[in-house]
Amino acid sequence: MPDDLAGIFEALRDAALTLQQGRGVGCDFSTLRPAGLQGQRIGGIASGPVSFTGLWDSMCATLLATGVRRGAMMGTLRCGHPAIEAFIDASATRRGCATSTSRRWSRTTSCRRWRRMDLGIWCFRSSRWRLADAAGVATRTLDAVIDLSRFPLPAQAEHARGSRRIGLGITGLADALILLGLRYDSPAAREQAAEAMRTVCHAAYRASIALASEKGPFSYLVRDAYLAAPFMRRRPADIRAGIASGGIRNSHPTAIALNPGSTPCRCALSVAIRAAVRATGAKPGRGFLRASR
């Protein structure tokens, strides 16, 4: 987002048009200067990124009042930004605020405050081969959705089809752990989470590599730079070799969302990867709980 008033309101306009059609939108406020700094053009005093998140919040509330189909919205701020603590406090009352963290920042007081508000790791319980098979099918399906989708703005269509992000993820973490009799933050639960997500991740990447051989890699791919990323250097040798040979169809086959919207509520699942507040007396619901019994 440009650090000037015209650019900020242009981003707000684009977000409004996107939400109007029931699509999701994300905005990074990290580029905006902290509150109190003097403006370069007219000499005014910057109000800071947190003040502008209120515009997005009001815009979203206005569109919801019109009865349009609800889309997801998220605003982010880099953890090293001077406004980070004010942003964290604002996230308790404003829609879709999230924080971009680093390992060093994760040990700070600010992060501990945030984690008390929004807990989460990830897990899904299934046999490995069934989970891998499902991840492969989902990868192909989500890739096809990109070509079938109509995007509100031309720039969105260009980026979506150039990067082909799909972000395959999981939901119902707390329900899975409750059924397994595992405490959410226990070592056993973390081991199950790591194994499950590793299976999903590797299956999705292998399916995307196979798709690249059929339909071609995503057009934004710079192969050497992609393989040099720290995350990719930790992938299995066959995945790295496949990308080096034929590329990969999707820039980001997997992703983890703390709040995926209303789908878990319809299926009576815990929200995405968050912990359940209390399992005592919980009644079995639809979706994963019933299917797992």
Rank of each mutant, 00 (worst) to 15 (best):
residue 1 M to F: 03
residue 2 P to G: 03
residue 3 D to Y: 00
residue 4 D to H: 12
residue 5 L to A: 15
residue 8 I to G: 10
residue 12 L to Q: 03
residue 12 L to V: 11
residue 13 R to V: 13
residue 15 A to W: 10
residue 16 A to T: 03
residue 16 A to G: 14
residue 25 V to P: 09
residue 27 C to A: 01
residue 27 C to V: 09
residue 32 L to N: 00
residue 33 R to M: 05
residue 34 P to V: 11
residue 36 G to T: 06
residue 36 G to R: 02
residue 39 G to Y: 02
residue 48 G to V: 02
residue 49 P to R: 03
residue 50 V to E: 04
residue 54 G to A: 03
residue 57 D to H: 15
residue 58 S to A: 15
residue 63 L to E: 02
residue 63 L to K: 01
residue 64 L to I: 09
residue 65 A to E: 07
residue 65 A to H: 13
residue 68 V to E: 06
residue 69 R to G: 03
residue 69 R to E: 01
residue 70 R to S: 04
residue 70 R to Q: 02
residue 72 A to R: 15
residue 77 L to V: 12
residue 78 R to H: 09
residue 81 H to A: 04
residue 82 P to L: 07
residue 83 A to L: 06
residue 85 E to P: 05
residue 87 F to K: 06
residue 90 A to F: 08
residue 91 S to A: 11
residue 92 A to S: 09
residue 92 A to K: 08
residue 93 T to G: 08
residue 94 R to C: 08
residue 94 R to E: 06
residue 96 G to E: 11
residue 98 A to C: 14
residue 100 S to F: 13
residue 105 W to L: 00
residue 105 W to M: 05
residue 107 R to T: 02
residue 120 G to V: 05
residue 120 G to F: 07
residue 120 G to C: 07
residue 125 R to Q: 12
residue 125 R to V: 08
residue 129 W to Q: 13
residue 131 L to Q: 08
residue 131 L to K: 01
residue 133 D to G: 12
residue 135 A to N: 04
residue 137 V to H: 14
residue 140 R to H: 11
residue 146 I to D: 05
residue 149 S to P: 12
residue 161 R to C: 00
residue 163 S to V: 14
residue 166 I to A: 06
residue 169 G to A: 06
residue 169 G to R: 06
residue 172 G to H: 02
residue 175 D to F: 01
residue 176 A to W: 10
residue 186 S to A: 04
residue 187 P to G: 00
residue 188 A to F: 00
residue 189 A to F: 03
residue 199 T to M: 04
residue 200 V to K: 08
residue 201 C to W: 06
residue 203 A to D: 05
residue 208 S to W: 01
residue 212 A to G: 02
residue 216 G to D: 03
residue 216 G to L: 14
residue 219 S to G: 00
residue 219 S to Q: 05
residue 221 L to T: 04
residue 222 V to A: 15
residue 225 A to F: 12
residue 225 A to K: 12
residue 231 F to V: 13
residue 231 F to K: 10
residue 236 P to I: 11
residue 242 G to S: 06
residue 247 G to S: 04
residue 250 N to H: 13
residue 251 S to L: 13
residue 254 T to E: 05
residue 256 I to D: 10
residue 264 P to T: 02
residue 266 R to K: 12
residue 270 S to W: 10
residue 271 V to L: 15
residue 272 A to Q: 12
residue 274 R to M: 02
residue 274 R to K: 14
residue 276 A to V: 04
residue 277 V to Y: 15
residue 279 A to N: 12
residue 280 T to R: 13
residue 284 P to N: 09
residue 285 G to V: 06
residue 286 R to N: 07
residue 287 G to N: 11
residue 287 G to A: 07
residue 289 L to E: 14
residue 290 R to I: 13
residue 293 R to S: 11
